[in-house]
Lab assay of single mutants.
Amino acid sequence: MASQGTKRSYEQMETDGERQNATEIRASVGKMIDGIGRFYIQMCTELKLSDYEGRLIQNSLTIERMVLSAFDERRNKYLEEHPSAGKDPKKTGGPIYKRVDRKWMRELVLYDKEEIRRIWRQANNGDDATAGLTHMMIWHSNLNDTTYQRTRALVRTGMDPRMCSLMQGSTLPRRSGAAGAAVKGVGTMVMELIRMIKRGINDRNFWRGENGRKTRSAYERMCNILKGKFQTAAQRAMMDQVRESRNPGNAEIEDLIFLARSALILRGSVAHKSCLPACVYGPAVASGYDFEKEGYSLVGIDPFKLLQNSQVYSLIRPNENPAHKSQLVWMACNSAAFEDLRVLSFIRGTKVSPRGKLSTRGVQIASNENMDAMESSTLELRSRYWAIRTRSGGNTNQQRASAGQISVQPAFSVQRNLPFDKPTIMAAFTGNTEGRTSDMRAEIIRMMEGAKPEEMSFQGRGVFELSDERAANPIVPSFDMSNEGSYFFGDNAEEYDN
């Protein structure tokens, strides 16, 4: 993207840094990872977990959730003011799984939030270390993106479920800051804005008074975040219109849905970061690795190297396929839920299948599930090659597409044709070009129609051997075009429920 120079890199967003050079960025990201790792080690000690239990991804998720809940100030305040039966607002906890007599047992633990905050700050040299908290939120978000298709949420806001490739980060909490905003897809931002506008339509006082002023500035800020994701002048001009509207209503909703559809071809720039579970960072720190000293990046080879040398386990339900569970977590670790499966298959070195073909449910185990038949197995999170994460949407291309997802959002900077089903997408653009945004709409449609099938995206960008740390010898991959490109292809993934 041309304006790259004016933006802070995501590592800076990730670490609240002012302008830093590459070495400083690597050190501050490393410091953040160190903090998460030290916190995780301490929690495993508190909970008396064995090494194996500490490497269980379900335990990692519970521990991450506990610290996120302990620092969720708004919710904590709300819980104190609106006490609900049987919930102690000062405590947080969740299921911890232990191996007892050759069987997995679930144990519900409860801790004072104050105590968890103390352990977290102690692991982070006394700081609140917001960057580390956001990092864990993005890992949870990436896992949700890989596990669930947001059909219901899309339909509720009037969008087409086939636009799911635009929904990265749709389950990120509001408090995820600049680093969170960077990884949100165009569809996620559109959905947040539509929800806001709908509230304004239904509630006369939404934009009024002292609160209304705050609401208005939040609305304009979200519009600017979305505008910054678009790469064409016409899309940005249309966002200006939406932002400046005196009284946002149905016309703005129409414009936003139009823009979301246009992003299936004229893709937005959305950041991709490899955020790993805390149970990967903990053992690495415990083994003596100093992330701050060595430096770390979320968008280069580092996460690949770390996963190459990590042992992570997962509980497996009786009829689940461990290899499929591994694929789910591998995609989440690489922030690749909406990437082209052919690119992923090449990088991973084994075939990556669409969601609907995987015999696996989510990673988390519900409290009512029976533990008797639970097994555990090693997650295979290694890769054959590594590639640089991208934040450009890439230019655009036609490809055989599917009944489910009709476009992709690249996660890796790797040369390819970008699949999208042009006739299906263009069919949504018939007729409606009147109104105050008509010239911009016409211009956007013209650009979409001009998108050429034979153009290559990320020209000359390749993948790298894991021994090639400096990215000196790019390998331009070859793809098996007979395979499906979309992950949520004609899909039956479970729906995400809060």
Rank of each mutant, 00 (worst) to 15 (best):
I316D: 05
Q4V: 11
Y281Q: 11
N142M: 11
P322F: 06
Y148Q: 02
M191V: 11
I347Y: 02
M440Y: 15
G288I: 10
K351C: 04
P423S: 13
D127H: 12
A251Y: 11
A131Q: 09
E210D: 15
R204G: 04
G249F: 05
K7M: 01
I257E: 06
I36Q: 09
R436A: 01
V352R: 02
E320D: 11
F488Y: 09
E375F: 12
V414N: 00
E64C: 11
N125V: 06
A251T: 10
F458M: 07
Y496C: 09
V343E: 10
G93K: 08
I365K: 02
E484M: 07
T6I: 07
I475G: 02
A403Y: 03
S28R: 11
T390D: 05
A401V: 00
G282M: 08
T390A: 07
Y52V: 09
M13L: 04
D497F: 10
V270W: 06
Y487V: 00
M136I: 15
P161T: 04
A271L: 07
D16L: 01
E220F: 06
F420S: 15
E81G: 13
A411M: 02
A471L: 01
E244F: 01
G132V: 07
E192V: 03
G485F: 15
A428W: 00
S383I: 03
E443W: 02
A427K: 02
R236S: 08
T215E: 03
A387F: 07
N205E: 02
M167C: 07
S60T: 14
V343A: 09
P303C: 13
S345Q: 10
I316M: 14
V109M: 15
M66L: 08
L110T: 13
R461A: 14
Q241N: 06
R121G: 07
R199S: 06
G450F: 09
F488R: 00
L193P: 03
R382K: 11
F71I: 04
G187S: 09
A428I: 06
I36D: 14
N125S: 13
S165H: 00
R436T: 05
V329Q: 05
C223Y: 09
L68T: 09
G35H: 13
M440A: 14
A182P: 02
R156W: 05
R391P: 01
E494T: 04
S402Y: 06
C333E: 02
S359D: 00
R74L: 12
K452P: 13
G393M: 01
R174F: 03
M331N: 10
T146H: 03
S3N: 14
G37S: 14
S141P: 11
A286Y: 08
T62S: 15
P89V: 13
E11R: 05
S407T: 14
T45Q: 05
D203L: 03
N334Y: 12
L133S: 02
N417E: 09
R195F: 09
P477K: 00
E53S: 13
E375M: 03
P322Y: 04
F346Q: 10
R208I: 06
C275L: 06
G431L: 14
D372N: 14
L79T: 09
M196Y: 07
Y296T: 11
N368T: 15
N483Y: 11
I25C: 00
T134C: 14
M239I: 12
A237G: 15
K422F: 11
V312K: 01
